[in-house]
Design a protein around this nucleic acid. Structure first.
Lengths: 205, 205
DNA sequence: GTATGTGAATCTCTTCACAGCA
DNA sequence: TGCTGTGAAGAGATTCACATAC
């Protein structure tokens, strides 16, 4: 394989492939072909093979992919084989829901600490974690946590983001509807619920 | 303007433009240029003008856009000027959080009814709405509600989706991590929290 | 025979460059 | 002069077609 810039769309699809492979593996599948994978996630096999090809060739011609090996390969590409711990900031309705959410585990992602600025919440326990004071954010530094889930009110988004960056956070999953400014070394992925909801009527005509 | 197929990426950006315009209008802006809008949302002015151009031309050369008129135009394109009511199915942690979420209002979207299958929840009140039995879904038909937010556990996703489709739902905001099968006339937009979280480590290297 | 891996062709989207109009 | 609107060029992503390997 020659050098290629990896399409962002490819990176976005990899977690899907990973989840599918894990689920199929759990279901007993030891070998997996690109068409089986495509069928499972509603994609097409050429796309999947092309996506994989950017990172090397990890299948066997005429046979397919070793499911376990594929899981390892994708995990490695996505850097899900290393540091996978995150903190969550903002224990409102959405924050609490995400704390209770079980979908992260399939990727080995784990929320290790929770912060809020509300004195009535600090000290309380939620999903096995004691809610900490956001002023004590630097306690995460020795733990080397690099990811944060941001579920604070919009008007606090930038302020809290700055604090996160100061405390070595390098990736933020942003649930606020604001654009947050970060240094180039920090990556933000945003989920904007209302934004996605707002285009439904367009498609429904 | 000649005929053009509208890029899906354009449609995805329209809600952002709309929100920005509404916020800027609230801030007192009566005229708005594409570069001001671009600055506000972190995009670029050419992109914005091109996006608008697919739907006609609603600015004034040398001047910019009338903010209020722009809001109307985008709302009309997105069909946010008509039926904007939705139901929510599955009052777990995430469902409750979304029910309490205030971000929909800027688009005029409204959750009008909530359903669950848990007998201990049915009849209880949440955010001013009584939780109804999912078996009584057909009560929405006379209300002509066409949108649903799906926050049920994954193993119920397809079953509940089928019921929604039977009851004239034509657009679904899907928070489950499954692919749900629907007839072609029904549109699904999916938000998969773990999927977006799982690619953060990749970008953080 | 069967399924992967990949250049080339195609399709889609973004950016450029500038014409058109207040 | 200033900002919109838009064909044309360029960049990016998908699909095709087939060589390659088991």
């Amino acid at each position: 394989m020659r050098y290629h810039k990896i399409p962002d769309e490819t990176v976005k699809r990899l977690p899907r492939y990973l989840r599918a492979a894990v689920l199929l593996r759990r279901g007993g599948k030891k070998k997996l072909s690109s068409s089986e994978l495509a069928e499972f996630i509603g994609s097409n096999s050429t796309q999947i093979r092309k996506d994989f090809s950017y990172f090397g060739s990890f299948g066997t011609r005429g046979v397919g992919y070793d499911t376990q090996k594929l899981i390892k390969q994708i995990s490695k590409i996505l850097k899900l084989d290393g540091q996978r711990e995150a903190i969550l900031i903002g224990v409102g309705n959405l924050g609490s829901a995400i704390l209770a959410y079980e979908g992260f585990s399939i990727y080995g992602l784990l929320i290790k600490a929770v912060f809020d600025n509300n004195l009535r919440k600090i000290g309380k326990k939620l999903n096995g974690l004691v809610i900490e004071d956001i002023a004590k954010l630097k306690s995460i530094r020795p733990k080397k946590i690099k990811m944060a889930i941001l579920t604070v009110p919009s008007n606090q988004a930038q302020h809290v983001t700055d604090k996160l960056v100061d405390n070595n956070i390098r990736g933020i999953l942003n649930f606020t509807s604001c654009r947050i400014e970060v240094p180039r070394k920090v990556k933000v992925v945003s989920i904007d619920i209302a934004l996605d909801m707002a285009r439904l009527p367009y498609y429904m005509q």
